[in-house]
Simulated assay, not measured.
Amino acid sequence: MLEGLPPNGASHVMRVDAPMEEARAIAEFIGETFDPAEVATSAFEIERLAEGSGWAVEIYFAEEPDEENVRELIALVSPEAAAAAVFSLLERKDWVAASLEGLAPVAIGPFVVHGSHDRARVPPSRIGIEIEAALAFGTGHHGTTQGCLEAIAAYGKRGRPRRTLDVGTGTGVLAMAAARLFHTPVLASDIDRVAVNTARANARANRAQGISFLHAPGLGARPFRTAGRFDLILANILLAPLKGIAKPMRPLLAAGGRVVLSGLLDSHANAALAAYRAQGLHLVRRRSIEGWTTLELAPHSGKPRADARKPVRRR
């Protein structure tokens, strides 16, 4: 159940039918945009008597939403879905747990992201990262989180960063993955104090050591300026804030370091890339998972690697 919500009473829901790719993109985009303690999303297949199978999106709100604002956000993915969206009131139940209870653990490289009910299913050879069902954001089922975990695993095949920075840590899943794979210090930051507290609690529950947590308004804050440089910087947020932190991030990156950016729709990736190229970084690898792009960047030090030429796609 969402923290702070009583088990009974009413909840607000928005529903719209859309093609599969649009439905998934809308659900993940809204899930990445709003506070996970206040909003949950679900994209699922439905049966239509006249047209056969299709897909639908449902977005649940703890408080009455600003319909115009929500429609504007959906329109960034699909103007047609934004126009057709229907808002209504329904009886509240434990809808977050219900929407996630059927989700299987997600295996990405050496990591398995899972709920407490699947703890026993994690193989001893894997790094299990447990995120409770009530924390929908950052469960590992998002293409953005998967892309970042793949990038962390790929870095591990080359070596270990001396220090890692996780910007916009959310549930802390990326910080925990880096800490448990590399066994080197990680700084996890977020502009949302609730997210920082949540990530800290998750790290404690997962016995992930070596992570420091910081609540800060942005990378220009003094703690970042005095923290030194990082060999690996992770930022799984959205296009606008990613562009905004490009300049203050650059001085934090160590020589030969690596930046991993995600939270990007495929159509937004080039705009983010342009902002970081302006700071002297080049594309190393591009991954696309279910319509969401993850970019790996590095400082210019000669020719870009060959694997930057073609995007890596997985469906």
Rank of each mutant, 00 (worst) to 15 (best):
V186C: 11
L265I: 12
N236I: 12
E64D: 09
G156R: 01
R207V: 12
G228N: 10
A195N: 06
L49M: 13
F87A: 02
P217E: 08
A195G: 11
K93F: 07
L103P: 00
G218P: 02
L265N: 09
G31N: 06
N236Q: 14
R258Y: 01
V113T: 11
E21K: 08
G263A: 12
I26E: 01
A271Y: 04
R285F: 00
R163E: 02
E58A: 09
L90D: 08
L187H: 10
A107M: 07
F29S: 04
G170M: 03
P251Y: 03
F137H: 04
R121A: 14
N69A: 15
A178C: 10
N197V: 08
P7M: 13
E22H: 01
A50T: 14
I131G: 08
I233Y: 04
L281A: 00
D190C: 12
A81K: 01
Y155M: 11
A154H: 03
I127R: 02
T145R: 05
L5R: 12
V284W: 01
A27S: 14
E67D: 13
A201C: 07
G54R: 09
E32D: 15
N270A: 15
A151C: 07
P311Q: 08
V122G: 06
A308E: 07
D190L: 05
G170R: 02
C148Q: 01
E296K: 02
E58K: 06
A107G: 05
D17H: 10
A104T: 11
R305S: 11
M176R: 07
P79C: 08
P185K: 05
F213H: 09
L295H: 02
P251V: 09
V312S: 00
V259E: 01
R250C: 03
E130F: 06
P248K: 07
S88F: 13
F213N: 07
R158E: 14
H142K: 07
L2P: 09
P36N: 06
V77Y: 06
V13Y: 04
A154M: 03
Y60W: 14
V122S: 05
L149I: 13
E3V: 09
P123F: 02
Q146I: 05
E63M: 04
L135E: 12
T184F: 04
P7C: 14
A246G: 03
S116D: 13
T184M: 07
P79H: 10
L261G: 04
D192L: 10
G244S: 15
F213T: 11
L214N: 12
P110A: 01
A154S: 13
A37K: 07
E91T: 12
M14N: 07
V312Y: 00
K310C: 00
F87K: 05
L283G: 04
V70T: 04
L49E: 15
N197I: 12
D66Y: 03
L73F: 03
R222F: 10
Y276D: 05
A10T: 15
A272I: 10
E290I: 03
G115I: 05
E63P: 00
E28D: 14
A98S: 13
E290S: 13
T226C: 00
P110L: 06
I59V: 15
T164W: 05
I191Y: 06
T33L: 11
S53Y: 14
I237N: 03
E21W: 06
H114Q: 10
R313W: 07
L219N: 04
G210V: 13
E47H: 14
V122R: 08
L181W: 00
